[in-house]
Computed example of a mutant assay.
Amino acid sequence: MTLTFELDPAVDRALRDGVIALWADVSNAGGAVGFVPPVTPEEIRPALLKHLVGMADGGTRLLVGRDGDGEVAATAFYTTNGHPLMRHWVWLYTVMVHPKHQGKGYGLDLMAAVEEAARTGEGFEHVEAIRLTCRGGTGVDAFYARAGYKEVGRVPAAIRVAPGDDRDDIIMLLQLR
C-alpha cells in the first residue's frame, strides 16, 4: 500500500476531523509537532483553525496523504512568506505521518511529494527553496537530511518541552533551483 497525495484538498468536516485525529495521534506518540503528550483533539483544534484561516486567506496550503482506506495519514502545510524580499521561499509546517504508517518509507514519500508540489504546483512558480524548523533531540533532523534538507541554523534551547528540558530549534533548507 502507498499513500496518495493531494495538494489543496477541499476542506470539509471529514478532512478537519482527520487532520485533528492525525495530529493528536502523532503528538501522543511523541511526535514533535507543536504539542507535548498527552494532548486531546480539542487542545489541537485552535492550531488547526489557524492553518485553516491561512488557507482561506491564500497564504497557507495543505498537502494531504491518504492511505488505502482514504483516511488522512500524512500532512504538510506550506506557508508563503509575506515579506516582499523573501517571497522566493516557503515555510513548511506540521509535517506528520500517522504512527501506524511510520517505518514504511511514507515519510520520505511525503517529503518527495512536498518537493514535487513546490517545484511544479500552481502558485509555486517562483519558489526557490523550502524552509522548516524542527525540534532538536528527536532525530527528526536526520530524517530531513535524508530527504535532502541541509541544516542552516540552530537556536540553542529555544523550545521548552518541560521544565529543565530545553531543545534546540533547528532550521533546515531545501534548495529547489
Rank of each mutant, 00 (worst) to 15 (best):
V19P: 04
L132F: 08
P99F: 00
D67E: 04
A10W: 07
V97C: 14
I20P: 04
A157F: 12
N28Y: 00
D141K: 07
L62A: 05
W89F: 09
M96T: 14
K104P: 00
R160P: 12
F143D: 07
P163I: 05
E116L: 14
D25W: 06
V90H: 00
V97N: 02
W23Y: 09
V33W: 02
I20R: 05
T4L: 12
N28D: 07
E6S: 14
L132M: 13
D67C: 07
T80H: 11
E122K: 15
P163R: 13
L132W: 04
G58P: 08
H98F: 03
D109C: 05
Q102P: 00
I159A: 13
A29Y: 07
R13P: 01
V72D: 06
V161D: 12
R167C: 11
G137D: 07
G121I: 06
L62D: 00
A10D: 11
D25H: 08
G70A: 10
L85V: 10
D169M: 12
V161C: 11
G121P: 08
G82T: 08
T4G: 06
L22W: 05
V36Y: 09
L92Y: 04
Y106Q: 11
R87M: 10
A145G: 12
L3Q: 03
G139D: 06
G18F: 04
F124C: 10
A157E: 14
A142E: 15
G54D: 01
E43A: 15
R87F: 02
A162T: 11
T133A: 13
D8E: 12
G105K: 03
R61C: 01
P99E: 03
E151I: 06
A73N: 03
W89M: 07
A74W: 00
L176S: 01
L108S: 05
L174D: 00
G103S: 01
A76N: 09
P84H: 07
Y106D: 03
A47V: 13
H126D: 10
E122L: 10
V11W: 02
T133L: 13
G148H: 01
D12R: 00
F77Y: 13
G105P: 02
N28E: 05
E122S: 14
P84G: 02
G70C: 13
Q102F: 01
A10T: 09
L108P: 01
